[in-house]
Write a protein that binds this DNA or RNA. Structure first.
Length: 667
RNA sequence: UCCCCGGUAGUGUAAUGGUAACACAACGGCCUUUGGAGCCGUACUUCAUGGUUCGAGUCCAUGCCGGGGAGCCA
């Protein structure tokens, strides 16, 4: 179900390939080392796909390891969720490459004895010492990027004394923070992490794996490289922020005189998708503030959220492949992910008919008691999925959106007097409407069907523009359907200010839909396409007789892409709404009321596009006389191309989508 | 301010000194019993300046811009 090539290529795989060719290793051993202090998210998925993908492609192994050196922040709940998420993501793909210990993950805490001995060794070699400074003193004495550090008073204390103190630290003689073990490296290094970094601290805390055994715990830099070494990791792949730690990673391993080969660390840029957040802290805020229902809320980018939403693991993997692996700090358009999901689901989803916002249709010339079973294909992309029977009768439901009493231009669907096709059924023509006498809303539509068009065929060859989905009212099965939308209204919710201000109030809408009867037997594993609506999967809340579906993702909908639709759904940011009016006016004004591409722009600082009437836009309106185009900083004015105008609009902080909408709206 | 790492269409990613390309997004068309899918097409690219070279996105220098780095977090 996946198009990922057997041998993807990126700078890390290139290195591995070269290392293998040079005979440095027989096969690569990677690892995925999360700290169990939160749920895994789409960013971790990128790392999982990278590490397990490498193991898979080069015949190696990827160890799953809990990086659990900080007992005060970690919990078994997280350990369990991490295991489940990793298994789900690699199932059927790299599940034979996972490195485990007796079926369980590796734990950094499993190495605490060895780590302790390594620290003793370092002290014995005069390369580490016990330091008695307070946290505040250590902090100050470390210096700053532009201020040299000063050595600890205890830097040169006798080795025997450090050894004794370290043993007593372990024995629990000292309170938290009283002493630390520090590597003796270089207090004047421009790299702060080499200024005698701490490698052990006292923490009288119970650990989720080791219980009360320890009251001293190693720090990340010490534990990680050595855990890699102990497990025989060849390529230790982490994210960019650890780049400055690499000299320390190497220093520890090299100064312990370990047999070679040593593991090496490589760094790549983490994934930052638009319209969501992946910061652990902010994810916790969303959960704790009950903005979402839990860690597996289908609106969240957590792996458990994606799973619950119905996104296939293969789509996540394809996404990880598509975005590549580099050292460039990038922001990935969430549309790339959505494309992968649709592509995957399009191939596998069973087509079904379901109406989310029902409008009753009475087919006047269809016999009252008659029911016909009509054949419908399960998946036009996959003939082996077969067909099914769908009941048709006199009263059916169609989507409210599929009927307009007064149709807008280019509206092909049902309206008084028009004919449309009911998918797999008949062509019907609207003959009348019934309105609520008080509200004036259309409550019922009357129609006639053409018996010659059974199955939706037109023996006379006549064309009908629209094909609508429908459900027989008497046979319909009710379902709760949860319609999800982006959790945030702006591409980069936490770029500036409080990300909570950018939460999309319409991220969840729940409706009661009418489903074709076969959906009563829907299974949690199956993926469904409700035709013309989107892809849906059963939610974990679903029970027999009480169906609950999640909309995984909508179908691409060109009709819905109009600017008013965008505004209605909250896709247009407040900023865009505010600026749209002024921009449209000013662009028209600058072009003598014509097309915006006829306005004048000039180049500012040789780089940025600027509009001849910037000043007036900044002042929020179009009042007054335009500045004569000749008086602008002596810069040459020119007629921008469409794309340059789009870029110009975007320079106000709007997305391309918004800019296009504004541009289009002005035509 | 110091150290490290980056900078290729709107967004990502390729091109490993030899014709700048692919995907997504956008736009247009064809086709369609899903306004889906599919097919065809259009527009838009190497941060800047110098240097090396027959030839530079690639190598060098300088500058500019962006990210990371001063937890007893990972």
């Amino acid at each position: 179900m996946s198009d990922i090539p057997e041998q993807p290529s990126d700078f890390i795989r290139d290195i591995i390939q070269a290392d293998l060719a040079a005979g440095k290793h027989q096969t690569p051993v990677t690892r995925f080392p999360p700290e169990p202090n939160g749920y895994l998210h789409i960013g971790h998925a990128k790392s999982i796909c990278l590490n397990f993908g490498i193991a898979r492609e080069f015949g190696g192994v990827c160890n799953l390891r809990m990086d659990d050196t900080n007992p005060t922040k970690e919990e078994v709940e997280y350990v369990d969720s991490i295991i489940a998420d990793v298994r789900w993501l690699i199932d059927g793909w790299a599940d034979d490459r996972i490195g485990l210990e007796n079926g369980q993950p590796f734990y950094a805490s499993g190495y605490f004895d060895q780590l302790y001995e390594f620290a003793v060794q370092l002290i014995k070699k005069g390369k580490a010492y016990v330091c008695d400074h307070t946290p505040e003193e250590v902090d100050f004495m470390r210096g700053a990027p532009d201020r040299a550090g000063e050595p600890s008073k205890y830097r040169d204390r006798p080795i025997a004394e450090s050894l004794d103190l370290f043993a007593r630290m372990k024995a629990g003689e000292f309170p938290d923070g009283a002493r630390t073990v520090r590597a003796k490296i270089d207090m004047s290094s421009p790299n702060i992490w080499l200024r005698d970094p701490l490698i052990y601290r006292i923490r009288h805390a119970s650990h989720h794996q080791t219980g009360a055994k320890w009251c001293i715990y190693p720090l990340y830099d010490f534990a990680h490289c050595l855990s890699d070494y102990i497990e025989g990791i060849t390529h230790s792949i982490c994210t960019l922020e650890f780049e400055v730690h690499r000299p320390l990673y190497d220093w520890i391993l090299e100064n312990l005189d370990l047999p070679r080969p040593l593991p090496h660390q490589y760094e790549f840029a983490k994934l930052i998708p638009t319209y969501t957040i992946v910061s652990k802290r902010k994810l916790i805020t969303l959960v704790n503030d009950q903005i979402v229902t839990g860690w597996d809320d289908p609106r969240l980018p957590t792996i458990s959220g994606l799973r619950r939403r119905g996104i296939p693991a293969s789509a996540v993997r394809q996404f990880a492949y598509n975005i590549g692996v580099t050292k460039y700090n990038s922001v990935t358009d969430i549309a790339v992910f959505e494309h992968c999901i649709r592509e995957d689901l399009n191939r596998r989803a069973l087509r079904r008919l379901a109406v989310l916002r029902p409008l009753k249709i009475v087919i006047e010339n269809y016999p009252e008691s008659q029911v016909e079973m009509l054949e419908a294909v399960n998946n036009p992309e996959d003939a082996s999925a077969g067909t099914r029977q769908v009941p048709f009768s006199r009263v059916i439901y169609i989507e409210q959106d599929d009927f307009r009493e007064v149709p807008p231009p280019k509206y092909y669907r049902l309206s008084p007097g028009t004919e449309v096709r009911l998918r797999y059924a008949y062509l019907i023509t609207c003959t009348g409407i019934v309105k609520d006498p008080h509200t004036g809303a259309v409550t019922e539509v009357h129609a006639t069907y053409d018996p010659a068009t059974r199955g939706g065929n037109t023996p006379d060859g006549r064309k009908v523009k629209a094909t609508l989905h429908w459900v027989s009212a008497a046979h319909a099965v009710d379902a709760e359907v949860r319609l999800y939308d982006k959790l945030f209204t702006v591409p980069e919710p936490d770029a500036t200010g409080d990300f909570r201000a950018n939460i999309n109030p319409h991220s969840l809408e729940t409706v009661t839909g009418k489903c074709e009867p076969s959906l009563a037997d829907a299974t949690p594993e199956a993926r469904y396409q409700f035709e013309r609506l989107g892809y849906f999967a059963l939610d974990t809340d679903s029970r027999p007789g009480k169906l609950v579906f999640n909309r995984t993702i909508s179908l691409k909908d060109t009709w819905a892409k109009m600017i008013d639709e965008m505004a209605k759904r909250g896709y247009l940011s407040e900023k865009a709404k505010y600026l749209a009016g002024a921009l449209i006016e000013i662009l028209k004004h600058g072009s003598g009321g014509k097309h915006p591409s006829q306005c004048w722009l000039y180049q500012k600082n040789g780089k940025k596009w600027a509009h001849a009437y910037d000043q007036q836009i900044a002042e929020g309106g179009v009042g007054g006389e335009p500045i004569p185009p000749t008086s602008l900083d002596g810069e040459k004015l020119f007629r921008p191309k469409k794309n340059e105008t789009i870029q110009y609009i975007m320079s106000f902080g709007l997305s391309q989508q918004e800019a296009e909408a504004i541009f289009t709206a002005n035509i």
